[in-house]
Design a binder for these strands. Structure first.
Lengths: 159, 159
DNA sequence: TATTGTTATACTCTATAACTATA
DNA sequence: TATAGTTATAGAGTATAACAATA
């Protein structure tokens, strides 16, 4: 209980974003119980929902994970009835993964829940406040993108 | 490539927060390479840094994970020299986990990096904009906390 | 009896490497 | 020779259940 050394500083924008992100993750995990879904599996279904039938190769590229990982994720969503493997019409090496009706309905429901949550989160704010909030977040995202790009490419210090 | 059904709607505050959270996670993962650390292990060290020497039981409560999980995390941070198990002075069932010098120095460095990032993320904003951003995020966090509490306790619809 | 931490077991997400079938 | 997807193997994070030592 006793804080040994670090003073509990004022929460910053970074702290708030981290806290909100953690709450969102927690909430998602809870909503997945008994669905056979998870963050990774849902991400895969989400990509399928937007891109339509896809090869596992293209899914691996979209999710930025290994081919082996996609095999496991497709196994899982197929087993739970959200997607199915079908033959590729022209390339017999490849597999096309397609959403089932259940998968499609599930993604549509998630999209509408996402929209509703998007509205609820800012419902109590004045329009101009919501505006500044949005612009502030856009700014933060831009700075972060720049910092990450610099860290990944430490050579040049932008002039 | 072809968006099959969902129109690419305008990004919302929720979308921005999710994107920023993902970037932060990605950046953290990158910074962990070759340190023997990870999000979970760092979280444990962070709690130790603030709470001081702790039993594994209290760490399990603080991180909200199982006792078994703590055994593994402590094994790992001990193996990498960030913390050590010591005997509890009065309860011979319990183990006290304490940070080593390396662990303490690492947490201090992370704290200062966190503070620097906190400053950088809002550095380009006008003071009043940063203010509204902060208040907007506090609002969002509050709404989210309420929604999660309601979802966990669906009985009463708040009057 | 209750609590602390461990071992046993299992599931998910992730990776690399070797291999098969096809291009 | 290169590519798509699988199997083999491994490590991390997570869980529950059974168990030993201690309270």
């Amino acid at each position: 209980m006793s804080d040994s050394q670090t003073a509990p500083h004022q929460p910053t924008v970074l702290d708030r974003v981290l806290a909100i992100g953690q709450m969102l993750q927690h909430d998602m995990d809870r909503s997945f119980s008994d669905t056979g879904l998870s963050t990774s599996r849902t991400h895969l279904l989400w990509v399928l929902h937007h891109a339509g039938p896809s090869t596992q190769r293209s899914l691996a590229t979209a999710l930025q994970v290994s081919a082996r990982n996609i095999t496991g994720l497709v196994d899982a969503v197929e087993h739970h009835g959200y997607a199915a493997r079908t033959a590729h019409p022209t390339d017999r090496r490849a597999t096309l993964v397609t959403l089932t009706d259940l998968g499609r309905r599930t993604m549509q429901r998630m999209a509408s829940e996402h929209e509703q949550l998007s509205r609820e989160l800012v419902a109590g704010l004045a329009p101009d406040e919501a505006d500044v909030l949005m612009r502030g977040l856009t700014h933060v995202e831009g700075v972060l993108a720049r910092l990450i790009a610099e860290a990944a490419n430490p050579a040049e210090v932008r002039s």
